Amino acid sequence: MPTRRAVTGRSREPRARFAEELRHLRTARGDSLRQLGERLGWDWSLFGKMEKGETVGGPEVVEALDQYYGTPGLLLALWELAISDKTQFKERYRRYMALEAEATSLWHFSVSVVPGLLQTPGYARELLAAGGFKGAALDQQVEARMGRQHLLTGDDPPPFRTILSEAALRTPLRSATEWRGQLERLAEAGEQGDVTVQVLPQSAGTHGLVSTDVWFLRLPGGRPVAYTENAYWGELIEESVKVERLQRAYDVVRDLALSPSESRKFIMRILEEMSCSPSI
C-alpha cells in the first residue's frame, strides 16, 4: 500500500488539490488515462476531465479510485472538500456575467427553472430561499437578480431566446398569486421584440439536453461560448468543439419546441387551468 501523504503542502484550492492528487497517483502507478479507464470500467475521458479540474466526478468513481490506488478514504475526503468549495464556481460565474454584459445575442434552455432574466421578484425570492439564502443576504440576491434584467430593457438590448421545458411551467410556487404573476410575465415577455419564448412540451420526449440547463452567448466578433449550470455550480465552456456539440443539441431542442405563438397559447392555457382549479 502506498504511503498516505498529508493533504497539506500543495494547492490550497480544494478542487485543484483533488485534481493534483489524481494526477500524482495515476502517474506514480504508470497508467495512461486509457489504461485507467479500462481497468476501472469508466470512460477514460472522465478521468482526464477530473485531472484537469473540469469535473469532480461522483462518489462511486472516487471510491473506486481510492480502492484501486490503495488510499482508503483519502480521495473521498478530498472530493468532499472539492464539492463543498464554491470559490471556483464564483470565479466562473463572474466571468460568465462579464461576458453576458457584452454579448450580442443570448440563447437559453431550461429543464425546470425560469431564467433569471425573466423571473419576477416573487419567483426569484422563493427559488433563492430554497437554495439556502435568507435575511439580508436573500434581499441582496433578489435585488441583484432583478438588476440583471436591465440587460433586456436598456438601450439596444441583445436578442434573447429561451426554450423552457414544460416542467418549468408546471412546477408552481407556494404562492398561487406569485406563480400566476410569473406565468403572466412569461406570456408578456414573448411580446417584446427582442425576446423569444418557446415551450418544449413533455410529449417531445428525450433529447440531448434532457438534464442540462445551458446558456449560449454570441460575443462581439461572432465567437460563441456556453455556460451550463445546476442548483449548486456551473461551468463556463469556451472550447469550440464542446460549444458546437452543445449547439447541435440545442438546435434539436429548438426544432422540437412549439413556435413562439403556440408557446404563448400554451402558457395562457396553464393560466386558465389555474383559474379553474378549486384550490387556487
Rank of each mutant, 00 (worst) to 15 (best):
S263D: 05
E262Q: 06
V214M: 11
V225K: 09
L236V: 11
P260M: 02
R264Y: 11
P260D: 03
L256P: 05
W233C: 07
I237Q: 00
D251V: 10
P224M: 07
L258A: 07
V214A: 09
L256T: 02
E244M: 12
Y250N: 03
L219W: 05
E229L: 08
S240I: 04
V214R: 07
V243Q: 07
D251Q: 10
R269A: 13
E238D: 11
V253G: 10
R269E: 04
V243Y: 10
Y232V: 08
Y227W: 10
V252E: 15
Y227N: 00
D255W: 12
L236Y: 15
R218M: 04
L209G: 05
Q247P: 06
R248I: 10
S261A: 12
E238V: 03
G221L: 06
A257R: 01
E229D: 14
E262Y: 04
K265L: 13
R218K: 02
L236I: 12
R269I: 09
L219S: 00
S261Y: 10
L219A: 06
P224E: 07
K242W: 11
S261G: 07
K242I: 06
R218W: 02
A231D: 15
E229N: 12
F216V: 02
N230Q: 06
S263P: 05
P260I: 00
V214W: 14
A249L: 10
G222P: 08
S259V: 01
V210M: 15
S259P: 09
Y232K: 05
E239K: 09
E229C: 06
M268W: 10
